[in-house]
Design a protein around this nucleic acid. Structure first.
Length: 432
RNA sequence: UCCCCGGUAACUCAACGGUAGAGUGAGCGGCUGUUAACCGCUAGGUUGUAGGUUCGAAUCCUACCCGGGGAGCCA
């Protein structure tokens, strides 16, 4: 029996007979010669089946085998520039593991609604394969970055007893006899507790928003990484965000060149992602937007259109900091230089991809936090433990959340976040 | 929740008040180097649902259902 090999390793076996195991990606035939395009998850290889060179029954299997049938094939590895992947197999044997019938996704065009309905199969196509490999790399880069920089991973709860950011809509469930529980929309409050224990911490997990958002930038379930650092102010927080984003981008450029090429992503704008990024205050942003014709007035949040206008003025990500406090969550620290604003900073990705980071320095004074809780009409009892953190050795601290799917979408140059996660959860999609 | 767009063959679309059609996929046949292979033939439809207007509706009107995009909100 020839040795089993992954397609990505074929280059190490030129001239020798090997076995590959996978699925039929596509097939072309010319009567006395079949071209079987085989994928195994590591790559694509073309198997060439010549009538005169194999037993009759093997050649017939080449006619029978259908798109996405599972199979094993043996053959001699040859370098050939005509073949996708650079190597091809002169087939000596072929076995069908299971014969697929009427595979719904053909090599021709399909609409996204149909493809999303067949997401469990769509994952097999090369474009989706590339996107999810970039996602994998981004997640590894995030974990590497925090580990190298001395952060401790803290897993925060997904089931919580109260809303973290108040107004947003939460997914609700009944929690035994203790009443309603909610799916977490951030791990931040728990992370603040952990950063008082460990100094530098981060959490990384799924987060849930029951908002009825129907846009290319929203999912109801998405992944967010959130660092929190004791003794950092909002400026150091922006520094950390820049370092993280640069680390992610350079890791993708270094390791995913092939994937980005398949996605036809122009890597020039990504190669430009180096510190420092741009930083402007909310006040400056409003002035620039008004000059550019936006109808924004001081005191309201930037709209999607405003973000697009703003990011197109810059060739790198841009931080917008110190928003009016009315736009932002109760836990953000008031700006001592202008108490109408808070010490926050959102990072807008270039090329119109919008907000990928939202962060702030946190309110660390007991009385300030208490009055802000009351302003937002939140229960003091539910936040007792959170207030405790301001009673026992409170320190300045800051953190942010980075949205993984938006980051994947930006780096891959995709029009919609639904392709950046294996199984997207959206307003009208819970299947498959 | 609001605004805009759409729903015709398995898929992508055409037909725009007068006999529902093409390409792809599927099935059969041909072809020894194909690259979304190519060539020939065949099968495949209660036009999202329910009502209405009309001699006649895929087409016009109303309601509903299902999707897509955007607003708000956010990562």
């Amino acid at each position: 029996m020839p040795p089993r090999t992954y397609i990505s390793d074929l280059g190490r076996h030129v001239g020798r007979e090997v076995e590959v195991a996978g699925w039929l990606y596509n097939k072309r035939s010319s009567g006395k010669i079949h071209f079987l395009l085989i994928r195994d998850g590591t790559g694509l290889a073309q198997g060439v089946l010549v009538k005169a060179e194999v037993p009759e029954e093997v050649f017939l299997l080449g006619e029978t085998v259908t798109q996405e049938s599972s199979l094993t094939a043996t053959g001699i590895v040859r370098a050939d520039t005509r073949a996708p992947g650079g190597y091809e197999l002169s087939l000596t044997g072929l076995k069908i593991v299971q014969l697929a019938q009427d595979y719904p996704i053909t090599p021709k065009e399909h609409g996204t609604a149909f493809l999303m309905e067949n997401r469990h199969l769509w994952l097999r196509s090369s474009r989706q394969h590339s996107i999810l490999k970039v996602r994998d790399r981004i997640i590894w880069a995030v974990r590497e970055f925090f580990r190298k920089n001395g952060f401790v991973l803290i897993d925060t709860p997904i089931l919580t007893g109260s809303a973290a950011e108040g107004a947003s809509t939460l997914f609700e469930t009944q929690y035994f006899d203790l009443g309603k529980a909610y799916l977490a929309q951030t791990g931040q409050l728990y992370l603040e507790a952990a950063c008082m224990a460990f100094g530098k911490v981060y959490c990384f997990g799924p987060t849930f928003r029951a908002e009825k958002s129907k846009t290319r930038r929203h999912l109801t379930e998405f992944w967010m990484v959130e660092p929190e650092v004791a003794f950092n102010d909002y400026v150091a927080n922006m520094d950390l965000g820049e370092e993280l984003v640069c680390y992610i981008v350079s890791s993708v450029l270094e390791n995913c060149g092939e994937e980005l090429k398949k996605l036809e992503r122009d890597t020039k704008p990504l190669e430009n992602i180096k510190r420092p990024f741009y930083r402007i205050s909310y006040d400056e942003a409003v002035a620039k937007l008004q000059a550019a014709g936006s109808s924004i007035t001081w005191g309201i949040d930037l709209g999607g259109e405003d973000e697009t206008i703003l990011t197109k003025m810059y060739d790198k990500p841009v931080y917008v900091h110190c928003y009016p406090k009315e736009c932002k969550a109760f836990y953000m620290k008031l700006n001592p230089d202008n108490p109408k604003t808070v010490l926050c900073a959102d990072l807008l990705a270039p090329e119109g991809y919008g907000e990928i980071i939202g962060g702030s320095q946190r309110a660390d004074d007991y009385d300030e936090l208490l009055s802000r809780l009351r302003e937002h009409g939140l229960s003091e009892e539910a936040y007792k433990w959170y207030l405790d953190l301001r009673k026992y050795g409170s320190v300045p601290h800051a953190g942010f959340g980075l949205g993984i799917e938006r980051t994947v979408g930006w780096i891959c140059g995709l029009p919609h976040v639904r392709e950046t996660i294996p199984f997207a959860r959206m307003l009208y999609r819970l299947y498959p």
